[in-house]
């Protein structure tokens, strides 16, 4: 059984179709990312799946249960982290998570355990207003997990974090679907979706354009591979003699060769002992985005 079944969800704001006939199935234990630029409709889609918003049309079921109208049987089985840090004002981190625990009938001791698991032991007595962005996100995620939900929704958990804090959070996020929990996360970072998710839905202008594993998405691109040879190693004549090279240009990094037969080109470079410092650049999800929308990806 699919953990999440979404059928033809539509949400319109005035003339804008924020979510435009989206269908999506997420299997149990899967880690799925919805990725796209700001304004693509990710949050609206997520909020409809969580049961916060009534769709104009279409339906969403989570764990076999309809999510709308507010379904009290479902609520204890799902965990949510919303886009803002939804905290009670002026409580400490420990009071915060214990309050959420109490709402789900979870004992305080279990809440404290979650505080340790997200690495906030030292900050337990700090008020939420005094936490750094990364710490606040950790607490927010811990609050979403305190009742061990079967399905977890995370809306842009790494937005507004500096790159270091973002990487640190990945370590926490990547283990969340162990033990069979289903996780759905939205992000506008392609690399994040690629690093964390089993499957990625690429969303733009209210539609899901592609939905597959990152590897399959990139492979499906059938994009040429770029091989970068260290600067000054390849003369113009040598480049001209290389087989299967579609294009070659000089850049700061060296000579960039574009090819659809990377094996043959690398073999050739090896023969001439030119492999020192060679870099292979395959396509990324950003290339996929470019391919399906015709636009450069800008988060």
């Amino acid at each position: 059984m699919a953990a999440i079944e979404v059928r033809d969800l539509v949400m319109t704001y005035g003339d804008l179709r924020a979510v435009d006939e989206v269908s999506l199935d997420v299997g149990e234990g899967e880690f799925v990312g919805v990725v796209g630029p700001n304004g693509a409709g990710k949050t609206t889609l997520l909020e409809m799946i969580e049961g916060l918003r009534k769709p104009d049309s279409g339906s969403a079921r989570v764990l076999g249960e309809p999510v709308w109208p507010r379904n009290p049987r479902l609520l204890p089985r799902i965990g949510v982290q919303l886009q803002a840090s939804s905290f009670f004002e002026r409580l400490t981190a420990r009071e915060q998570i214990r309050t959420f625990a109490a709402l789900y009938g979870v004992p305080a001791g279990h809440a404290d355990e979650w505080l340790s698991r997200v690495g906030l032991d030292e900050k337990a007595d700090a008020r939420v207003e005094d936490l750094s962005g990364g710490q606040a996100q950790r607490l927010s995620i811990a609050c979403a997990l305190v009742h061990d939900p079967e399905v977890l929704f995370l809306d842009e958990p790494t937005a507004a974090l500096d790159p270091q804090a973002r990487r640190n959070l990945w370590d926490l996020l990547s283990g969340l679907n162990e033990s069979g929990r289903t996780v759905v996360l939205t992000t506008h970072y392609m690399d994040e979706a690629e690093a964390l998710c089993d499957r990625v839905a690429i969303m733009d202008a209210g539609r899901i354009l592609q939905f597959d594993t990152p590897t399959a998405l990139v492979r499906g691109l059938d994009a040429p591979v770029r091989i970068v040879v260290a600067p000054g190693q390849l003369g113009r004549d040598e480049v001209a003699r290389l087989p299967h090279v579609l294009d070659a240009e000089e850049s700061e990094d060296g000579t960039v060769l574009t090819t659809r037969e990377p094996g043959a080109v690398i073999g050739h470079l090896a023969e001439h002992d030119l492999l020192d410092g060679v870099q292979l650049r395959t396509g990324t999800l950003e290339d996929v985005f470019l391919a399906v929308t015709g636009r450069d990806y800008r988060a």
Binding site: L52, L75, S85, F88, E89, Y104
Partner: peptide, 12 residues
Amino acid sequence: QSKLLRRLQLAP
């Protein structure tokens, strides 16, 4: 503003 209202809406 902090969406705590929404968060509570999704708590049992």
